[in-house]
């Protein structure tokens, strides 16, 4: 009965699976999920820092993948990139709406505080030490790295990044842009 067993072959072409899913092929979708589910949950969990919420968002992400797989265009990027972009967007939206809710809940006690957690660049750096296994970030300067980490992993906007780091918005934008471009160029140079 269960031929076409669900086994995630590492060489499996995610792009092909995604396109088959777009055609309503639930088996391909299951294989796609098996190959990428842990990656998506890991990313979402890193942003949300809450296991239950992260699992919920992961499920929403894959439902969205199922619904909108037809909009994936292989000529414009990898399937994994498409999927993780979608996952990151949802995680960030969730963490921001949670932050907004929390701000509303505590409005009366934090009217005078712009950011409840006043973290300097140094402590932000320190907090990240434990998880610093990101070889991709190793090509960056320290300032680029913290700007990108705050944006990508903590879901901050570039305005919030500038506030958190205590630097002008233009500086934050430059760090984000230059850092990300450097990562891109590193990819192009091969690893």
């Amino acid at each position: 009965m269960h031929d076409g067993a669900v086994a995630a072959d590492p060489g499996e072409d995610l792009s092909r699976l995604l396109q088959a899913s777009a055609q309503g092929d639930q088996q391909s979708f299951a294989v796609l999920y098996d190959a990428t589910g842990a990656r998506v949950l890991g990313l979402v969990l890193r942003v949300l820092r809450d296991r239950a919420q992260a699992e919920e968002v992961t499920q929403e992400v894959f439902l969205q993948v199922w619904r909108t797989a037809g909009s994936y265009d292989p000529s414009r990027g990898s399937a994994l990139g498409w999927l993780l972009t979608l996952a990151h967007r949802r995680a960030v939206d969730r963490v921001r709406s949670a932050a907004a809710q929390s701000r509303r809940d505590h409005a009366y006690e934090s009217q005078h505080v712009e950011t409840p957690f006043d973290i300097t660049a140094e402590t932000a750096e320190g907090r990240m030490e434990a998880t610093r296994v990101h070889s991709a970030l190793d090509v960056l300067t320290e300032t680029q790295r913290s700007a990108i980490e705050l944006a990508f992993f903590d879901g901050l906007t570039h305005v919030e990044v500038s506030e958190r780091l205590g630097v002008p918005l233009g500086t934050a934008k430059t760090r984000i842009r230059d850092g990300l471009r450097r990562m891109r160029d590193q990819l192009g140079g091969g690893q």
């Binding site: 842990a38 949950l41 499920q59 990139g81 990562m183 891109r184």
Partner: peptide, 26 residues
């Protein structure tokens, strides 16, 4: 291109989802 570059940021973050999530999703 830049979105593609962000893929590497989650390279080491994989967390295996519980089987129930898979079943529910399917």
């Amino acid at each position: 291109e830049l979105a593609e570059a962000t893929v590497a940021l989650s390279e080491h973050l994989s967390v295996e989802p519980p089987p129930a999530l898979r079943a529910q999703l399917l």
